Computed example of a mutant assay.
Amino acid sequence: MISIRSFLGAGLLTLAFAVSPALAHPPIAAEQAAATFEQDRADILAMAGNYKVRFDMQESTRWDSAYTPLDRKISGGHEVVRVVEDTGRKIVLQHLLVVEMEGQSHIIKHWRQDWEYEPARVLVYSDRNAWTFEEVPERMRTGRWSQTVWQVDDSPRYGGWGQFETQGGVRRWRSNWTWRPLARRDAVRKPVYDRYLSINRHQNTPDGWIHWQDNSKMGPKNGKLAPIVQEYVLNSYTRFDGYDVKAADDYWAATKDYWAAIRAEWDRIAAAKGGIAIQEEAETGTVISGRLLELGDDVAKGRTSTAAALSEAKKLMDANTRKL
């Protein structure tokens, strides 16, 4: 296993981080931050709604001459995004996929995004099977937001921080460089790369919003982490109500207490163990993800109580995480 710390020590990230927002963008004055705070919040909250989603992924430039980039892949689906928490300085958005199979609607709890204003630290992907807290430089906190993305079982995926800015008449939020574990689409293929180094952007559009990712796929080479290929991902969320939105809302109404307790348990584990260390699994994200989702489905369908599901879930989470 090649650690990210070793990679940093090798100096290969010097150029990458030289163009990160932490250095390219100066600190934000308090007056400027106050003037744009409500617009920032409005842009985040505008991502909630009912959508038709288009996922457009393209491996483009190879950095390793021995690697052949994958063909472009386009897919899509229907996704509901709901605000599950808004305290002013923290906004939590939950995504739910709605899939039609044999005339029935099936709900797949999808990713979650947490936005926090002027955070002191962010939970980030630090190495294989591990997420740790990373301090945000104090001079870079004013006026900036972190975005932490969580997997389908509410375990962490990646975190970053950045600012809203307007360029060329388009307003967007842009992250710093962030490490990420492989997405399922890559992990199941067991590729030569084993993680991403990414910049993440969110931009509102007249019809919804886009999530734009610039991913350097990294893998071990000659005892160090090295770039293998560049990938561009554009996920487009277009407002659309022509599917079974009610099924998603019914699922969330039935399971929201269960998932709120799961979120709280991950937070407790991270605080007690110095982060979250859990085995990753290609098909599901973590080794316990499948079971946590099954328990949520059992609650939604009335096959078990929220209390009983949580009792099993908490035991699984404690048993499968370790101290960092």
Rank of each mutant, 00 (worst) to 15 (best):
I2R: 00
S3W: 00
I4S: 01
R5L: 14
R5I: 08
F7S: 01
L8E: 09
A10H: 05
L12N: 09
L13T: 12
L13A: 13
L15E: 14
S20Q: 12
L23N: 01
H25W: 08
H25Q: 08
P27M: 05
A29P: 10
E31G: 07
E31S: 12
E31N: 04
E31Q: 07
A34N: 10
A34T: 06
T36S: 05
D40W: 12
R41G: 09
D43Q: 06
A46T: 03
A46F: 06
M47H: 12
M47W: 02
G49Q: 06
V53C: 15
S60R: 15
S60D: 08
T61V: 06
D64M: 08
T68I: 04
P69C: 15
L70A: 15
L70W: 04
R72N: 10
K73W: 11
I74F: 12
G76S: 07
G76N: 13
H78C: 13
V83P: 01
G88L: 01
V92C: 08
V92E: 04
L93H: 00
L96K: 03
L97W: 08
V98E: 08
V99N: 14
E102M: 05
E102H: 11
Q104T: 14
Q104V: 13
I107S: 00
K109L: 14
W111G: 04
D114I: 10
E116Q: 12
Y117V: 03
E118P: 00
L123G: 06
V124G: 03
Y125M: 03
N129Q: 05
A130I: 03
F133H: 11
V136A: 12
R141L: 04
R144K: 11
W145S: 02
W150N: 08
W150F: 15
S155M: 07
G159K: 03
G159A: 06
G162K: 03
Q163A: 14
Q163N: 05
Q163S: 11
F164E: 02
E165I: 03
T166R: 08
G168W: 02
R174H: 06
W177F: 10
R180G: 04
R180L: 15
L182K: 00
A183I: 07
R184I: 13
V188S: 13
K190G: 03
V192H: 00
R201W: 06
Q203T: 09
Q203A: 11
P206N: 08
I210C: 07
I210H: 01
W212M: 05
W212Y: 09
P220A: 05
K221F: 02
G223R: 03
K224Q: 13
K224Y: 01
L225R: 02
V229K: 04
Q230M: 04
E231G: 08
E231V: 05
V233D: 14
S236M: 12
R239A: 13
R239C: 01
F240V: 04
D241R: 10
G242K: 07
V245P: 00
Y251G: 00
A253N: 15
A254S: 09
K256A: 11
D257F: 01
D257Q: 10
A260R: 08
A261G: 01
I262D: 02
E265H: 15
A272F: 09
I276W: 09
I278L: 15
I278Q: 11
E280T: 11
E280I: 05
T284R: 09
T284V: 11
V287W: 02
I288G: 03
S289V: 10
A300Y: 04
K301H: 11
T304C: 15
T304H: 09
S305F: 13
A307F: 15
L316C: 14
N320Q: 11
